[in-house]
């Protein structure tokens, strides 16, 4: 009589025909080497040889390649797009990684070990051990001043960031404030100017001294950069015009939060509109908690 072997409990198996996480090992190694340099030189962009992915640019191929090089069998992945887990982009990327890794996925920020994001940082504070991967369309903060990559590299080398301040100050002179609502530039560890990807200004303060490791991947531009945990990140500003974040006059319509980033939603063709949390996981959890609390409050 033979005993049938006990299968170890593991997440769903990846589909056959793919290497784990889709990328071949040679490609992962080269991306991993770039990611390690990125962590050692916070905010500095490291070139890497970007691969074709089974999705088009603009769908976060840079972030996807970084995630594919970092992810392991024990990870639990969350994917958000503009704060939501259920948009087409987020669903597709989550499905892709389930298929090629067989890993667990979640919509809850606190359960995730790895979070791939486009355009938001979750409202739930991140913790030590978590890794955020940002999808970056355009990594170079000097591009609007110096389109040549070689020249921009020289400016970074010399810390020649004066022209960026001049440009921002022109905004203040013309509009009375800095008109940049997204992808607002930051200084990292008092040394490198960095674009935080198109997150709203509201999220910039969360970059600073965050306990999680933050990795940024730009597929088309073939760049990786990083913020190690507990790294100083300062949004550019001026003594007479300090950096400020967006605020709203009303709380979230669904959960009542007054300290979150709100999206405007048009509810009918009369132009009625609501303001609701852009972070759907955070908003849902608050609604559940509010519901539980209601009887004791009344």
């Amino acid at each position: 009589m033979t005993l049938s072997p006990q299968l170890p409990s593991s997440p769903a198996l990846p589909e056959p025909g793919f290497n784990f996480a889709y990328l071949d090992e040679q490609t992962k190694r080269s991306i991993r080497r770039a990611a390690l340099k990125a962590v050692a030189i916070p905010g500095h962009q490291i070139p890497f040889s970007s691969r074709e992915m089974p999705m088009s640019y603009g769908w976060g191929t840079g972030g996807v390649q970084v995630t594919a090089s970092v992810i392991g069998q024990m990870d639990t992945l969350k994917v958000i797009d503009q704060g939501a887990d259920d948009t087409t982009n987020a669903v597709n990327i989550r499905r892709f990684f389930r298929k090629v890794c067989g890993i667990n996925t979640t919509e809850r920020t606190e359960e995730a070990t790895l979070i791939q994001t486009r355009h938001r940082i979750p409202e739930t504070p991140l913790r030590e051990g978590q890794i955020m991967v940002y999808q970056v369309p355009m990594p170079e903060p000097l591009y609007f001043i110096e389109p040549s990559r070689t020249e921009a590299n020289k400016m970074h080398a010399l810390e020649e960031y004066g022209p960026v301040y001049v440009r921002l100050y022109e905004d203040i002179t013309r509009f009375g404030h800095i008109a940049m609502a997204y992808d607002y530039p930051v200084m990292v560890n008092d040394r490198y100017l960095m674009k935080p990807s198109p997150i709203p200004r509201f999220d910039n303060p969360k970059l600073h001294m965050n306990p999680a490791l933050q990795l940024f991947g730009a597929g088309r531009e073939k760049r990786i950069y990083a913020l190690p945990p507990y790294t100083k990140v300062k949004s550019l500003d001026f003594e007479d015009h300090p950096f400020t974040v967006e605020t709203w006059d009303q709380p979230c319509e669904f959960c009542g939060a007054t300290d979150t980033y709100l999206d405007e939603v048009v509810t009918d063709d009369q132009g009625s509109r609501l303001w609701i949390c852009s972070d759907t996981d955070y908003c849902n959890q608050r609604q559940q908690n509010n519901h539980l609390l209601t009887p004791t409050l009344s």
Partner: peptide
């Protein structure tokens, strides 16, 4: 297990530099 052992070791190297 070349694929998963390399991944595990990479994460150790990454965490070591990050912390």
């Amino acid at each position: 297990d070349p694929v998963h052992d390399a991944q595990k070791t990479f994460r150790a190297l990454l965490d070591a530099l990050a912390r």
